[in-house]
């Protein structure tokens, strides 16, 4: 049904030049026949000649009207929203109160957001990691070259520009160290697995574009990335299985929360941050790699 409708729409839009040549013969025939065009014929003629332009204009006007209406409705809604920055807003209810007041005590994490997403709502974060993994699998499915065994030519490899190379030499170690810092300090300071993964993925992408595909392939082969991603996801899932099992049966987990503020504290949040960071790093790099050369 939908397909038919789209096809009809396309034919309607695509009236352009092929049909207008057909139309040129028509007036002559009409003169010889003395045939008065019926309303239906006149409509088809108008439809074929003016239809595409009319439809384009109508589509443009209709979409502008729809968009302006939507912006107006949204702005009116925004004007009725509770005041910005007011502590009495309905958003600041008992849920956030509970997270802030009990978060440090229950998760051991100084960073309350980190404690929230990797302890109270760790299942949600597991889903997020799987979303990334699924996206990279889908991209691999779509972008991977069909011909196997053929070596990727260096034709599309980035030019080994001396400026990029020198700057990359200086900046990549710092980027990697900063990424590791963010990953290991996710429970103590702003940061965490996702941002660390983005930073480290950026470092890998820079390395790949500065030094070519061959150098990065000494470590980051397809197999390595697959193993790291799957191992991290399995580790995450297994560790959460354990904590759900113990939590549901009211058994103590036996994982010490440690001193708040120390680097080895807050129980499972540190290893989970590392797992998430590795998944995100591998996904970011594999996106770049698949888009640029069609394989990892």
């Amino acid at each position: 049904m939908m397909n038919k409708f789209i096809n009809g729409l396309v034919k309607f839009v695509d009236g352009d030049f092929t049909i207008s040549t057909k139309r040129k013969a028509k007036p002559a025939r009409r003169h010889t026949d003395h045939h008065e065009p019926t309303f239906k014929e006149r409509f088809t003629q108008w439809h074929d000649e003016k239809g595409p332009a009319f439809f384009k204009a109508a589509y443009g006007i209709a979409s502008i009207v729809i968009c302006l209406t939507m912006i107006t409705i949204l702005l009116i809604t925004a004007s009725f929203l509770p005041e910005y920055g007011n502590p009495d807003n309905p958003v600041n209810n008992e849920v956030s109160e509970r997270y802030i007041e009990k978060g440090l005590e229950e998760t051991g994490s100084v960073n309350i957001v980190s404690g929230m997403i990797l302890d109270y709502r760790a299942f949600d974060t597991l889903g997020e990691s799987h979303v990334l993994f699924t996206a990279s699998a889908a991209v691999m499915l779509l972008m991977k070259k069909e011909k196997k065994g053929k070596e990727v030519s260096d034709k599309f490899s980035p030019k080994r520009d001396i400026i990029v190379k020198t700057v990359a030499q200086f900046i990549i170690p710092f980027l990697l160290v900063y990424g590791v810092y963010l990953m290991l300090n996710g429970h103590l300071s702003p940061g965490g697995g996702f941002s660390a993964g983005a930073v480290m993925g950026a470092a890998l992408i820079l390395f790949s574009s500065a030094f070519g595909y061959k150098k990065i392939k000494t470590v980051f082969t397809e197999k390595f990335i697959k193993i790291v991603t799957l191992a991290s996801l399995l580790f995450y899932a297994g560790i959460k299985c354990y904590s759900f099992y113990t939590g549901a049966n009211h058994i103590p987990t036996g994982i010490p929360l440690g001193q708040p503020g120390a680097i080895l504290s807050s129980g499972l949040i540190l290893p989970l941050n590392i797992a998430v960071g590795l998944v995100v790093t591998c996904t970011m790099y594999s996106f770049y790699s698949l888009f640029s050369k069609g394989e990892i």
């Binding site: 920055g85 958003v91 956030s96 997270y99």
Partner: peptide, 29 residues
């Protein structure tokens, strides 16, 4: 939506775990 005037980011400093001290952490997540 998560911001509250004059409050800090939800990272515990000096062991203060009072709701009046930090902004709402849920929208960040």
């Amino acid at each position: 939506k998560g911001y509250i005037d004059g409050r800090l980011a939800p990272i515990v400093v000096n062991g203060v775990t009072d709701m009046e001290a930090y902004i709402n952490p849920i929208p960040s997540g």
